Computed example of a mutant assay.
Amino acid sequence: PAILTCLVDSSPAASISWGKLGHQMPLLEDGQGMTSALTIPDVTVKDSGNYICTASNVFGSARRNIRLDITDPPLIDPSMEKNVTVQQGNDGFSLKCLADGNPEPRVRWRRKDTNFSNIVINEEGQGMTSVLSIPDVTVKDSGNYICTASNVFGSVRRNIRLDITDPPSISVPTTSVRVKEGDPAVLSCLVDSNPSASITWTIQGRPVPDGDNGRNQKMTSTLSIPDVGVKDGGDYVCKTTNMFGSVMRNIHVEIEGTTTCLVK
């Protein structure tokens, strides 16, 4: 609680009352004789302000101002999301961090794992809000961001995980392979995807059951053919898919000494 005390010297005795600037209703107080105490049981920052003790008798009145400042360590808005997902290419994306406290806290952003590089920091208000702006979001902007609010009574922070999603990309070392009949062959494709993507192999539109299919964010998928036969020639397709799209690459396998008829 906060207790404000007003001592009065008066003859004849004076009546004592309390008020607050900007507050319309009179405030309740306790007192004995010429001492009056104003008690605020559960103080909050809203109770800060100028309080007025007024003493009056038949000969006049006198008043005294008392300034009450309620200090409060900083607090970051608890409704702020801890995990944020944005699609690559989003233009004008921003994260807002709102804090409260008395005295007014200083609010700042930083990135935990690297520097900000192309990221712009904008300040709004009078230090209570900090906006982190990323003008052209790319996968490289994924990471852990920290909002910190500080004043003379302490410091708090909130960790935000930012995940940038995009359609998968795929690359192959070569688009054409020549293999002698009876020799082994290994086909591979490199997939980069966020979120993780499924990978499948087909030949002439038919699934290849022995393919190294899977689901990962960044991986190399291989298809091994231990003993190449004439039937193994043709167009193989490595296809990767996530929730934002799919992409495929063709690899043509030619068996030396044979002619393959392709059906499309």
Rank of each mutant, 00 (worst) to 15 (best):
13 A>M: 15
13 A>Q: 06
15 S>Q: 03
16 I>K: 00
18 W>S: 00
19 G>T: 01
20 K>C: 08
22 G>W: 06
25 M>R: 00
26 P>D: 10
27 L>M: 13
27 L>Q: 04
28 L>H: 08
29 E>M: 10
31 G>N: 01
35 T>F: 04
37 A>I: 12
40 I>V: 09
44 T>S: 09
45 V>I: 09
49 G>H: 04
50 N>H: 02
54 T>N: 05
54 T>K: 15
63 R>W: 14
64 R>P: 02
65 N>R: 11
70 I>R: 11
70 I>V: 06
74 P>K: 11
76 I>Y: 11
77 D>K: 03
77 D>E: 10
80 M>P: 08
81 E>K: 09
83 N>L: 14
83 N>C: 11
90 N>Q: 13
91 D>T: 12
94 S>M: 15
96 K>I: 14
99 A>K: 04
99 A>V: 08
102 N>W: 05
103 P>E: 05
108 R>P: 03
109 W>Q: 02
114 T>A: 12
114 T>S: 09
115 N>R: 02
119 I>R: 13
120 V>P: 05
121 I>L: 15
122 N>T: 04
123 E>P: 13
126 Q>D: 11
131 V>E: 08
131 V>Y: 14
133 S>M: 10
134 I>T: 02
135 P>T: 12
136 D>K: 10
138 T>E: 04
140 K>H: 12
145 Y>D: 07
147 C>W: 01
151 N>T: 00
152 V>E: 13
152 V>D: 07
154 G>H: 06
154 G>Y: 04
155 S>G: 02
155 S>D: 08
159 N>A: 01
163 D>F: 14
167 P>R: 06
171 S>D: 06
172 V>L: 05
173 P>C: 08
174 T>I: 15
176 S>V: 09
180 K>S: 10
185 A>E: 03
186 V>L: 08
187 L>H: 00
187 L>Y: 04
190 L>R: 02
191 V>N: 07
200 T>L: 14
201 W>N: 01
202 T>I: 08
209 P>R: 01
211 G>D: 07
212 D>A: 13
217 Q>K: 09
218 K>G: 10
219 M>A: 06
225 I>L: 10
226 P>I: 00
228 V>W: 03
228 V>D: 01
232 D>A: 03
235 D>S: 08
238 C>G: 00
239 K>N: 11
243 M>K: 07
244 F>N: 02
246 S>I: 03
246 S>Y: 12
248 M>G: 03
256 E>R: 02
